[in-house]
Write a protein that binds this DNA or RNA. Structure first.
Length: 350
DNA sequence: AAACCGGGGGG
DNA sequence: CCCCCAGGTTT
């Protein structure tokens, strides 16, 4: 027996012995029932899906029943599962299947993948489980299993790694009992070969697992590379009038710091000309614009480098906003870095 | 707080 | 093609 045959055989023996065989979608395995389960399971664990699946099947027992529903009704049964685009795709696909295919799902991979919300892995799973066609699958569970079993030294999101994993998934899929195998390898990933603390002691394929042999199980699968956060730079201008009041603007409701009061923000290259056109001071020798030390702030998705500029003795201004005493300003809802800047104003009070 | 997840859609 | 996203769960 070859290594690949041994993998499938060992997995199937484990599945017969220890796998789950009584899940709702494992009874009466029609393409419709399997498809609904696969879509729900894409985003949610088995235990959560079970009650949703049962209510959904009661409400929409057939693809015809689903196709006739309106979107609101479908989404009400989806409510709590998240990713509502997938609930909408579910309805779209049901309508296509009923209107274009007389209620029968396409029985080939291409046709299945053309339906909204169905990609290669979901198409493979439905055709394998409901239509007894041999197709590999590669969902998150399977990727994790294969990355460990083969000690894959790269992240599965890389195109070439993913292509290799599909090839490996295909090689390991047996010629017989591929429907059970599809279930089995997903079960293995979900119950034993878990993301953290995998239960290697109970694993049926431990002996040939490369990660196990290397004693490097925790190294796989490789994590997605953290994308470097982009850096953006903005000028923020601290404007003071003769009464030592500071000028604040309320930010637009949408976007960063939505609705909060903040300093006037301008792009770096335009801000000086912009200020000159909008602001006048008592000083007649031009604007005495002073740049303060750079100020850094990190958001979830980017770094912001603030170039603070300071301008005193402002006599008139043509910008939307209001003047506040420093203590008034500090009592407002300010973004944390802006608060720190304005606090410097308070302490440098002379 | 951050990683994760299948497929869709935009740049 | 590559990047980003949704939105709830897990760590």
């Amino acid at each position: 027996m070859s290594d690949t045959e041994e993998f499938a055989q060992t997995l199937l023996e484990w599945f017969d012995r220890s796998g789950r065989h009584d899940l709702p979608w494992q009874q009466n395995k029609t393409p419709y029932r399997v498809w609904v389960s696969e879509i729900m399971l894409q985003q949610t664990q088995v235990q959560t899906v079970i009650p949703y699946y049962e209510r959904f099947m009661e409400a929409f027992p057939t693809v015809e029943a689903l196709a006739q529903a309106d979107q609101e009704e479908v989404l009400s049964h989806w409510s709590g599962l998240g990713y509502y685009a997938r609930g909408r795709n579910l309805l779209k696909t049901a309508q296509i299947v009923v209107n274009d295919f007389q209620g029968h799902f396409p029985q080939d991979l291409e046709g299945m993948m053309a339906l909204p919300g169905i990609g290669r892995s979901t198409a493979g799973a439905v055709l394998s489980i409901a239509s007894q066609q041999r197709h590999p699958i590669l969902d998150g569970n399977v990727k994790r299993v294969l990355c460990r079993y083969n000690a894959v030294e790269s992240w599965s999101g890389e195109k070439k790694t993913e292509a290799m994993l599909w090839k490996r998934a295909d090689e390991l899929t047996p010629e017989q009992r591929f429907d059970d195998y599809t279930q089995a390898i997903m079960d293995l990933g979900a119950t034993l070969c878990t993301r953290s603390k995998p239960k290697c002691d109970a694993c049926p394929v431990q002996k040939n697992c490369q990660a196990w042999q290397l004693n490097r199980v925790a190294d796989f699968p490789y994590a997605k590379p953290k994308k470097a956060k982009p850096t953006r730079e903005k000028a923020m201008t601290i404007l003071l009038n003769e009464n030592r009041q500071v000028f604040l603007q309320q930010r637009p409701q949408k976007g960063i710091w939505g609705g909060l009061w903040s300093l006037p923000e301008m792009s770096l290259d335009q801000h000086e000309t912009h200020i000159k056109s909008k602001v006048e001071t008592r000083c007649d020798k031009g604007l005495n614009l002073i740049e303060w030390p750079l100020f850094k702030h990190t958001f979830t998705h980017y770094h912001l480098i603030i170039h603070p500029f300071f301008l005193d003795e402002v006599s008139s201004i043509k910008l939307e906003g209001e003047w506040f005493t420093v203590s008034e300003a500090l009592s407002k809802g300010l973004p944390a870095p802006i608060r720190k800047l304005i606090k410097q104003l308070e302490s440098s009070n002379d």
